[in-house]
């Protein structure tokens, strides 16, 4: 797949400035810690954080998997719910007026208050994490899909109707594909929220996960291990973000085709 390789190399070249600015910030941090002689209990140097990742790799890996599982399960649940409801809303517009206020209110609930309650009700297992990830990601995905359907060109719908297509046929052939760019826009944002929500849910109450590593490290005054877990969670988020970008590239190939005229 040479096109894929080319895209990959261009994106590396494009991200050089970003890599550089991150490197500069890390170097400044490292130098500051060296020169000021600040205690590692307050501010550990980046090199020490990396050392902690290496030293605790078994622990970190064992706790990354539950976080990944909670994120993906919760997100999959949220996605299927959002898709099902978006289709229902598209076919029964009255549902939109009935349901949207409820969803908007759900977005106003502070996670700090809701998370402990959900853990209280559903225990330390996977369920509360799935629910919290869904609470955070469901509405943005639903909005992306519903707005995407609405973005369909009226002329394309009139054309399909003139050909004798049914309402379901118009949805399948025009409204659903029209929503894809919106869907991927929502997907990229939501997947990053999903990781944060999963870690927060673990922090509030779980048996394992990156949130638990962070909580334990905090309780034992180990900012270096906390930051090590943060680095892993960032890497996890970036990997998932990259996966959605790749998926978009594969599904929306026609957009690139338009660009290289």
């Amino acid at each position: 797949m040479p096109a894929l390789l080319r895209t990959f190399l261009t994106s590396i070249r494009r991200s050089l400035p970003a890599i550089l600015s991150v490197a500069v910030a890390l170097a400044a941090w490292e130098i500051y810690v060296l020169v000021s002689g600040i205690s590692a209990l307050v501010l550990p140097a980046p090199s020490r954080v990396i050392g902690q990742i290496a030293a605790n790799r078994a622990l970190l890996w064992a706790n990354t998997l539950p976080t990944l599982q909670a994120t993906l399960t919760g997100f999959a649940f949220s996605l299927s719910l959002a898709f099902t409801l978006s289709v229902l809303i598209d076919f029964v517009p009255r549902l939109r007026r009935a349901l949207f206020p409820v969803f908007v209110i759900s977005q106003t609930l502070p996670l700090v208050a809701i998370a402990p309650l959900v853990v209280l009700w559903f225990g330390f297992g996977l369920t509360p994490k799935i629910l919290l990830v869904a609470l955070v990601t469901f509405f943005p995905m639903l909005i992306a899909l519903v707005d995407g359907y609405e973005s369909t060109e009226p002329e394309i719908e009139a054309l399909l109707a003139s050909m004798g297509a049914s309402r379901a046929g118009i949805f399948r052939r025009a409204r659903f594909p029209s929503a894809m760019p919106y869907f991927f826009g929502g997907l990229r944002i939501s997947i990053t929220y999903a990781v944060v929500a999963a870690i927060f849910a673990e922090y509030v109450g779980a048996r394992s996960g990156l949130g638990i590593v962070i909580l334990n490290a905090k309780n034992s005054f180990r900012p270096d291990l906390m930051l090590a877990a943060v680095v892993i969670s960032s890497a996890l988020t970036l990997a998932l973000f990259g996966a959605t970008a790749l998926l978009q590239w594969l599904v929306l190939g026609w957009r690139q085709a338009g660009a290289v005229r």
């Binding site: 002329e155 009139a158 054309l159 003139s162 594909p177 026609w254 957009r255």
Partner: peptide, 14 residues
Amino acid sequence: FAFMPQRDALMPWR
């Protein structure tokens, strides 16, 4: 009737 709308109404993804 076969209908040709004002703008081409080609589906960009097809």
